[in-house]
């Protein structure tokens, strides 16, 4: 049971809460969501509390993240898109910290559950749709009709555009979810080899060096993936928000 690679995704309810027949228990997943939010907030809050004119290393991290996301959003959606800066910044930091916390052994990975990533993706797409209609009315629908398309092709192109728009939340959420899930399963499988092999005495322990090295390498890769997936999520969010700000391509 201890080497079951799926066990790490198991949710165990710590404080049972039931409202209207639905289970709203405070689980290990809830705990790690709170830990993610609190540790990220604390880091950003404490590192910038001195408001140093010349930033220290930790303050630099906060400032660099800020400018990184700000320039990303400004490039993708222009200065009008900057009203969504808090959203993109929160999403990026939340996903990044959740991913990074998940790399620690015995820690729960919040983003390895499709419902969480799907909810975040829906938040993005929902924001795009609501703001798009609020700002442009039915003009927002021009998003689905690219300019300069021959009349006969319009229905086909519109159908393709609609399908591609609808598949966005799916691709956005599944990409993050699948990356975290697959990485953690691989990690757990190789780590499992180490314990299984070392149970076979000295020769087994010698043979376990290989999967151990693999485990270390994959851990490093997971750290990279944690950054990369948070970045990809943020970049795509910026591009989708651009549609809400400037619907006519």
């Amino acid at each position: 049971m201890a080497t079951d690679p799926i066990e790490q995704f198991q949710i165990s309810n710590w404080i049972p809460i039931e409202i209207g027949g639905l289970d709203f228990s405070f689980s290990n997943a809830s705990a790690f969501m709170v830990v993610t939010a609190v540790s990220a907030s604390a880091f950003l809050y404490l590192t910038t509390s001195s408001r140093g004119l010349v930033p220290g290393r930790l303050q630099s991290i906060s400032e660099m993240t800020y400018e990184f996301i700000a320039s990303m959003l400004r490039e993708a959606a222009g200065s009008k898109g900057m009203r969504f800066f808090p959203l993109v910044f929160s999403l990026f930091v939340f996903i990044l910290v959740a991913n990074l916390l998940g790399v620690f052994p015995y820690f729960f990975t919040v983003t390895s559950h499709i419902i969480v990533t799907f909810a975040l993706a829906l938040l993005v797409v929902g924001t795009v749709i609501i703001y798009g209609f609020y700002k442009h009315g039915f003009g927002f629908l021009k998003l689905f009709v690219p300019e300069g398309v021959p009349g006969a092709l319009v229905p086909l192109v519109v159908a393709i555009e609609i399908v591609s728009f609808l598949s966005r939340p799916v691709s956005l959420s599944v990409r993050l979810f699948a990356n975290m899930l697959a990485g953690h399963i691989t990690l757990k499988v190789f780590a499992g080899f180490v314990t299984t092999l070392s149970a076979f005495g000295l020769a087994g322990a010698a043979g376990a060096v290989l999967p151990l090295a693999m485990t270390i390498a994959i851990t490093a890769l997971e750290v990279l993936v944690a950054f990369l997936q948070a970045y990809v999520f943020a970049v795509l969010t910026c591009m989708y928000l651009n549609d809400a700000v400037n619907p006519s391509h």
């Binding site: 309810n13 969501m33 939010a37």
Partner: peptide
């Protein structure tokens, strides 16, 4: 339901 609620609260 639990995940959505606590995600909504924490995020």
């Amino acid at each position: 339901p639990s995940q959505l609620l606590w995600l909504a609260v924490s995020f």
